[in-house]
Design a protein around this nucleic acid. Structure first.
Lengths: 339, 339
DNA sequence: CTGTTCAACGAAAACGGTTTCGTGTTAACA
DNA sequence: TGTTAACACGAAACCGTTTTCGTTGAACAG
């Protein structure tokens, strides 16, 4: 077992001081060519690499960024992580991923664990528990400590920090408008409970599009589902009672499941009923029929979040100025709507 | 901006030494009740939390574990991460996720970044680039440095370390056997190039099952696809020429895509052709028809990997003994096979 | 009164680097 | 010959902990 070599070892071996070694390895002008070459050659030979922890302690920079997301088994979040990873890595940063599991408590615990020196900044998408509880003190605390924070997708207005979102309202608006243009009038919405910021925005876009096209918003055409139990009968009733000819779903699963139920009821997609779902993921692409979807551009969102964060981290406390970046969603038309 | 408070601050404020503060906060017997209470109260008041980096440097324990996987936009890997996270978190560890992007170089770079003190151990699934190159020196190096390593799913025999896999051969065997029992004789296999350890094992299981049932293995019934370009015509030819009545696919995407092509060709699933795919993910569940799948138990695999790793990390260098844990795959029957 | 013991605390080294500041040597110059 | 500046390097502080090993004063026995 070869232990890692340290500056001290090199110094002792080459009979110079630790400072000389340190400087030599940084190619400092202070050190003579000869000595530098000796030291660098020795270091290369023994594969010396500085200890990250020691460097972090000294520089108060960890080169780690902490990402806290509600769930990782969600295509959207994985694409965001990929975007974050990509950008962060290119800048020499590592990504520590923590899952809040949609729980307020876990979100708080994870952030506290990381906030004690482990990371240089946070990228976070709020858990539903947090949005429901409407308690953002844990976020306030880290920002007060001067730790940069970027919120993405599931954000809150209660905290001043950089934010990255897509225009959820616009996405829903575009989708609903498309359905209207295709002659649909009895357009339903399958969503979650309202405390999720994104669901709310999507509902608003849906309703606005209806109103702009002089279609009345009917409560019976809005179905609120919990992501845990997707009650088949509830969906059937919904389709039947409201006599729906098109559905906008706030996520892929709802859409795929909705299509399944519709098919079981003997409905033809898209002739009898059209479907559009949020989050253009694998399911949308490979569903049968393939699902028209509103792409959230997760990877891009991740990259932008990482970029904003790292800029804040590396700007030595210039004047604080926060921005909110709003990405445009894209409607990707497939076979679950008329083309 | 409230800066973080340190032992030194507390010591100065309470006019005791740093060591006394440190001990008091650890409830050491050395310190009198009075002093301990004073110090603890003060620490609570100012929300003192030890600096992780400093503790890491001192203890040579980071409480971080490094996970390097080929890709995160893959249901299987995300479930593994979830399992790792879950167990690691329960033991007070954080998870640093790095993506190799199926590239040997990125795998090496990521590991080198993390190996310099950032983590206590590695959990890794090899990139296809690495398996293709067959070069495992980067793994050898970290193990020689005494850093615990757990390999999962995509492993190699060239390295001595703990490993966690499912019995891929058995999975393929079970699936193929099931197809045979349902009267299929012209069973095809859609796989990737052979350098991936898992694909090879699955091919072997497939062939073994055929032989055990006195069905000849025909090269024409094996299609090797690159995951990049899924050539529709190649698949059509494959189905036609080999006159296939059942297909085993080494991953979900191949299976879903295969079903799509089959349907386009007018084939009925499962009457004309059955499908079974590896990795029981969301796609399998929500496909149409839903896909009979071999579950890889990713989450369990992640938990076990994390458990094995953390045990190694926390066992102060007892005698080295490595184990390979082989999980049993489960065949989940759905509508793409006859039931 | 001296010696021992124990409780309660502090000094200092250590982890592995970075960085500031000082110092000895040499060469150049007046 | 004495002064000075540049060069090359080392000492030491520091980052925030942990931990070992004193040290001090009081209490107690003899």
């Amino acid at each position: 077992m070869k232990r890692k070599i340290t500056l001290k070892h090199i110094a002792r071996e080459l009979e110079v001081s630790i400072s000389t070694v340190s400087k030599a390895l940084k190619n400092s002008e202070e050190i003579s060519r000869d000595t530098k070459e000796r030291i660098q050659a020795f270091a290369k030979l023994y594969n010396y690499k500085p200890n990250n922890i020691a460097v972090s302690l000294k520089n108060k920079r960890t080169k780690n960024i902490g990402v806290v997301i509600p769930d990782i088994v969600h295509h959207f979040f994985t694409t965001v992580i990929r975007g974050i990873e990509k950008y962060a890595n290119s800048k020499g940063y590592n990504v520590i991923v923590c899952l809040s599991d949609e729980s307020f408590d876990k979100e708080v615990i994870n952030m506290e664990m990381l906030a004690n020196g482990s990371i240089d900044g946070f990228i976070i998408s709020l858990s539903s528990g947090t949005q429901q509880k409407n308690d953002y003190n844990h976020l306030k605390e880290v920002t007060e400590q001067g730790i940069p924070l970027v919120l993405f997708d599931r954000i809150t207005n209660d905290i001043d920090c950089d934010k990255v979102v897509i225009d959820d309202q616009l996405g829903a608006y575009m989708a609903t408008k498309k359905l209207v243009e295709q002659g649909r009038r009895k357009i339903g919405l399958i969503t979650t409970e309202d405390y999720l910021s994104v669901s709310r925005a999507r509902s608003e876009g849906y309703m606005k599009a209806l109103r702009d096209n002089t279609i009345e918003v009917q409560e019976s055409r809005i179905l609120k589902l919990s992501s845990m139990d997707m009650d088949e009968n509830a969906i059937k009733n919904f389709f039947n009672l409201a006599n729906i000819d098109a559905v906008l779903c706030v996520n892929e699963i709802f859409a795929i499941y909705g299509m399944k139920v519709a098919k079981e009821m003997g409905k033809k997609i898209p002739d009898d009923i059209s479907f559009i779902g949020f989050t253009d993921g694998l399911l949308s692409k490979y569903a049968n029929p393939s699902l028209t979807a509103i792409a959230q551009h997760g990877e891009r969102m991740g990259e932008i979040s990482a970029k904003m964060l790292i800029e804040k981290v590396e700007s030595e406390g210039e004047e604080e100025t926060f921005q909110t970046k709003i990405l445009e969603p894209t409607l990707i038309e497939r076979d679950s709507t008329i083309n």
